[in-house]
């Protein structure tokens, strides 16, 4: 038996030679939230042309929590997701997943981009398994899972079809399944419905609501659609203009399972009005 020793027991995410340089925020906490962004700062470019996009953003996502981030366009919402995905590095601050610092580590979150970005040479089921395949999971098992899920979302007959044969809404469903079936338990959705027409969009919202309520995962959802955020989320972070700060953190009080009719209830309308005003002030303050 090993004697309990700090250096082996307490896994440090960085080499111990850097021990002296570590900030307090680099250490995992036992009761840490599922995902935590701590004091994120980000600027692009250098010198006079430097664009300061993010200023001290902190937010948390609990296990199984649906968190939306809304803000004016250009407030760096997508940049935030790129940092969680490890494609971009924050200039300052830490991204903690299950208590471990994951700055710059790719592939820790499932991802659904604005455009479905399905691979046109892959059939629908091959597209659905892409994230699993990339993670090296056994193909046969993934394909079976894909079949079950495609049937579940009534796309079963399109298993062998190619993406261009599907409508925009159907393609987004496939893109969501691809993220959902991936090995990562955190999902990042980047304005997934913004390219759809209004009718398809509201249809997709209730579709996502139903699927998610049956399979709770931690979700970071980027949108600039207030109603969408209110309908889907547990918590909403409202970002300011560039350089983005968190203007307000709103806990959405409505009970689950939610139904589409919720959008007509007085409390929903009141909350929507408050958020709309908050954002309108921010946009006009530009």
């Amino acid at each position: 038996m090993k004697s309990p020793n700090l250096s082996t027991d307490h896994k440090s995410p960085v080499p111990s030679s850097n021990f002296a340089n570590l900030a307090l925020s680099d250490f995992p906490k036992p009761d840490a939230p599922f995902l935590e962004l701590r004091h994120i700062r980000k600027a692009f470019g250098k010198g006079k042309k430097q664009l300061h996009v993010m200023d001290n953003i902190s937010l948390t996502v609990q296990e199984g929590e649906f968190v939306s981030i809304i803000g004016p366009s250009g407030s760096g919402k997508s940049t935030l997701l790129q940092m969680i995905g490890g494609v971009l590095l924050p200039d300052d601050g830490a991204i903690m997943l299950q208590g471990k610092r994951i700055n710059g580590q790719r592939g820790r979150a499932g991802y659904m981009p604005q455009q479905p970005a399905l691979f046109p040479w892959r059939t629908i089921e091959q597209n659905v398994v892409l994230a699993r395949e990339t993670a090296g999971l056994p193909q046969q098992e993934s394909l079976e899972l894909a079949r079950v899920w495609l049937d579940k979302v009534s796309l079963g007959e399109f298993r062998q079809a190619y993406p261009h044969m599907l409508s925009g809404g159907m393609q987004q469903r496939v893109a969501f399944l691809r993220a959902l079936l991936g090995p990562q338990s955190l999902l990042c959705l980047d304005e997934p419905f913004s390219a759809l027409d209004a009718f398809t969009r509201s249809e997709m919202q209730s579709w996502l609501l139903r699927i998610w309520e049956e399979n709770r995962r931690s979700v970071v959802f980027i949108t600039h659609h207030i109603e969408e955020a209110l309908l889907l989320s547990d918590t909403i972070y409202v970002l300011s203009n560039r350089p983005a700060r968190v203007l307000e953190r709103v806990e959405v009080p409505f009970e689950r399972p939610r139904r589409e009719e919720l959008v007509d209830s007085p409390s929903f309308i009141a909350l929507r009005r408050r958020l709309t005003e908050l954002l309108r002030e921010e946009v006009s303050a530009k």
């Binding site: 995905g85 790719r106 820790r108 981009p113 970005a117 691979f119 994230a131 990339t134 993670a135």
Partner: peptide, 26 residues
Amino acid sequence: TDRTMLNYMQMIGASRGQIFWKLELP
């Protein structure tokens, strides 16, 4: 190669080789 697809592959943690064989080559 399509930038959105490339970014998707990077976000889900695909290696350089996977990006080449699964995306760029086809």
